[in-house]
Design a protein around this nucleic acid. Sequence first.
RNA 1: GGCGACGUGGCCAAGUGGUUAAGGCGGAGGUCUGCAAAACCUCUAUUCGGCGGUUCGAAUCCGCCCGUCGCCUCCA
Length: 460
Amino acid sequence: MKLYNTLTRQEEELDFNKQDINMYVCGVTPYSSSHIGHAMSTVVFDVLRRYLEFKGFKVNHIQNFTDVDDKMIQAAKKLDMSTADLANNNIESFLNEMALLNNLPAQLYPRATEEIEKIIEIIESLISKGLAYHNKDGVYFRVEKVLDYGKLSRRTLKDMISGSRIEIDQNKENSMDFALWKSEKPGEPSWDSPWGKGRPGWHIECSAMSIKYLGNSIDIHGGGLDLIFPHHENEIVQSESFTGEIPFSKIWVHNGLLRMGSDKMSKSVGNIVLIRDVLDKFSTNAIRMFILSSHYRSPLEYNEDQIKSKEISIKKLTKLLENTGGKVDFDQISYVCQIRQEQFINAMDDDLNTPRAIATIFDLHKDLTRLSSEGIDIAAGQDLLNRLSDILGLDLKNKNIEYNQDEFLEPLMKILTNIRSELRNKKEFELADKIRFDLYNIGINLEDSLEGTNWNIIDN
RNA sequence: GGCGACGUGGCCAAGUGGUUAAGGCGGAGGUCUGCAAAACCUCUAUUCGGCGGUUCGAAUCCGCCCGUCGCCUCCA
């Protein structure tokens, strides 16, 4: 399998000579509800993980929570609660939403505040190596000391300083030096350290957690494109300086960002759509198919019409699973399965090309409907359809039938459709059509078939 | 200002040197049906932002121009 490595700016063959793959994915800062941009990122890495597992690897997947930082402190203050409570609340709903999105849970979800010991160990080591210094504001990393600083984001210190929008901090040796530890300010959560009370800076928590749980040099480190600089750049320089091992991560995978209109969706811009609101409107399958219909490195524009169109696509695929029976034709069915599975794998092997993978699923669908209409048993093909869909985290077996589970509607509709069937049997079509028409006007759609009448609530 | 990405049919989106430019949605026609709906079948870009260039051959490589976006501050 090839994956695009942000560090080398090219696709690289994944030739890990081992069965385990260590994958660290940067999670969220749980200061508020998560938006669908976060959903996009987690779905992408979920699919990467599922595919690697399909290929036979055991994936150690870790996703962190940065549960203390400026935003956390501000938000907690505003809500008059502790940062810990705020984090707990948001983490709980985040994990809940991940499950609803059908993302496999990571093996571990470490939190910055629970890794202070490791964080301090790293900072002490960096100071002792002369790569970090302590002043009244905290501890800072000396970026000038590291020659390859900027290798991930491909920029030089000179470029960064000249283009910098941040005010120059006179207390820092170099304006690009970044905080490893921040000294305590009144009213803020803090921990004891050799440099007095304080809290970790951004970036250091990910180095600590990645190294502690996955080792000095991991296989895949991922996150959104917007984390390349400064977050991942700084993680690299801290980690490699601390462990002395290069690379900190063999491959850096970054997903493109979700846009709202033509702008990036982000909490700070304020143009966000919450995951839970999208989950209210659309099925998990449709949301995932929407996300996976464009390549993970491209930007994706949030578009409800497009998500809606995926509901229809999913329904088509689901419908095919209902076909049963027919004569066994091993040659035909296995030929089709072999071709389509191969195309699916080729697509996924090519830098996780999910749009192409999805296209082969539809090709498989077309093949199978053809064979089925020729009276051939397609059970083996349906099984493949399920397996391939499962790699994308699409659950075709789970029909979203919750609509029809209302305890009053269900028996009521049964009475109505039974009466209507009798009318149709007596050829009293005018009255039967009136029932269908009137129900349609209150939002219930009837579909007659040979097996009986199905109904569903029309979504808008 | 520096670095980077992108512009493919009505919408979304693959394809990055060579048979008919994937796939989904939409649209048109058809099969089925008492009629609908659903499902299925067929059709739906001589053309890839514009202009030049390289090449036997370019959506695909090069140059310029136009347009959109991201990072350089917190961000998935």
